[in-house]
Design a protein around this nucleic acid. Structure first.
Length: 429
DNA sequence: TCTGGGGTCCTAGGACCC
DNA sequence: TCTGGGGTCCTAGGACCC
């Protein structure tokens, strides 16, 4: 931990999902857009025009539907294949501007710039123009000697056009910096969420300057080590390093709100079969194996008048599993064990935990079961074949339990074409 | 009527060991 | 009957992020 040794830049795409939609429909330029979550449930992205009309982040869509119609807001279902592909294009351009890049999220990337022989403001202006020109996505850049500071700087870059999208917070004189902190709610700092903000408010800490000045011991008792780190970073001491190599993932979750309340075992089962297949595909794509499987289903947390219930069970394995012929039937078995009839199930999913690098070591205590191992081996080959076919002919072979009414499928009424990832949906000119 | 999905890390408490 | 101190590992729940 030392002061002023680093120079972090946070590059953040402006209203990323909305901007992606605009790239392929330029007539939406200047028009308010919102993008909805899965199942067309909540608003998860807004163009500036939509923000100006008062659409809040995360509101249920049905609460703003009237406003959307009245004000001519264009509504889109989320289109992750498109956003993911646009993201990798943006990230790859950004990577040319420093040897040290951390891809932090689908629309954000850190660069570490200390020691680069450039005028950094100009360097980042160039980056900004190139991303805009090559992908059509507008980005803003915040710079500072810590990650928390670069996040804060990014906010300034976004909100004050006079900086032309690039702002370096380290250039502020101390008094101006304090003034800036005073104007930022403590809950708006990166790493201070709603719960922590509430705790801080209770002892009279409301804005970031209050927090900056607060006693470090009090911060640590109240918020733990994370809160302490945020405060240190605010003071210019870097505690959060660049993570250029993405850490190996620890779990894979596949879950969904169903499009409707599911009231029979078969409906729930069918939904979960599709989810476990998705999870297993991901597992295989990452060449990982899993040592635990959790299955859960729950009723809606929003309907206060109806009975609420959350059912879940986790099974651990001594031998890591990686194969759909094991995991899919096991999911059905677990579901059977936890399922209770008479509840309207609204959401469910599976989690694969304790992920390990793919390694087919046999269970030491399984020596008596050579016959079963034989079966396992042949079913493994079979699964590989099935996977191959499904890869080529997109999901043409399924378990019988996966096929059914599709009643559970999420709504996506307003989805735009997957322009860049599906041949049938290419942009037509 | 209609409220997302996918992650990570930290902490506290229990079980267990010497 | 008296009954310490220190450590690890696991898990569940909470908080945070986008």
């Amino acid at each position: 931990m030392s002061k002023g040794q680093f120079k972090f830049a946070l590059i953040d795409c402006n209203n990323f999902y909305a901007s992606c939609e605009r790239v392929f429909e330029p007539k939406l330029e200047g028009i308010p857009i919102v993008v909805l979550s899965n199942n067309d449930g909540c608003v998860i992205a807004r163009s500036n025009e939509a923000k100006a009309l008062g659409v809040k982040m995360g509101v249920p869509y049905f609460q703003v539907r009237g406003l959307a119609i009245n004000k001519g807001i264009v509504v889109k279902s989320s289109n992750y294949p498109l956003y993911g592909d646009m993201s990798s294009r943006v990230m790859s351009i950004i990577s040319n501007y420093s040897p040290l890049q951390e891809v932090y999220s689908i629309d954000e990337s850190f660069l570490e710039l200390s020691g680069l022989p450039f005028n950094l403001i100009e360097h980042m202006q160039k980056l900004r123009q190139q991303v805009q020109q090559w992908t059509g996505i507008p980005v803003c850049v915040g710079m500072g000697s810590t990650k928390v500071l670069s996040k804060l700087a990014n906010r300034i870059a976004k909100n004050y056009p006079r900086f032309k999208g690039v702002f370096d917070i380290d250039n502020l004189p101390y008094e101006r910096y304090c003034k800036l902190l005073t104007s930022v709610d403590v809950g708006d700092l990166w790493g201070i969420g709603r719960q922590s903000a509430k705790k801080l408010n209770r002892i009279g800490i409301h804005n970031s300057y209050d927090f900056y000045q607060a006693d470090i011991g009090i911060v640590e008792t109240l918020l733990g080590v994370n809160g302490k780190r945020v405060q240190q970073e605010l003071k210019g001491y870097s505690c959060l390093p660049m993570e250029c190599v993405p850490p190996t993932r620890q779990q894979i979750v596949s879950s969904r709100s169903f499009g409707a309340d599911l009231t029979t075992f078969n409906e729930v089962n069918q939904a979960l079969m599709t989810l476990i297949r998705k999870a297993v595909n991901k597992l295989n794509n990452h060449k990982l194996a899993t040592t635990s499987l959790t299955v859960f289903i729950r009723t809606s947390p929003h309907k206060k008048d109806k009975p609420r219930i959350h059912l879940s069970k986790t099974i651990g394995f001594t031998t890591p599993a990686q194969d759909e012929s094991v995991l899919i039937p096991l999911t059905a078995k677990i579901l059977k064990a936890i399922y209770k009839s008479g509840y309207p199930f609204y959401q469910g999913g599976v989690m694969l935990g304790g992920l390990t690098k793919e390694y087919r070591q046999q269970d030491l205590f399984n020596i008596n079961q050579s016959e079963e191992q034989q079966t396992n081996k042949s079913s493994l080959n079979q699964s590989n074949t099935v996977r191959g076919i499904n890869k080529r002919f997109r999901g043409s072979i399924k378990y019988a339990s996966e096929v059914g009414s599709d009643k559970w499928l999420s709504k996506a009424e307003f989805r735009s074409p997957r322009y860049t990832t599906h041949w049938e949906e290419l942009l037509k000119i």
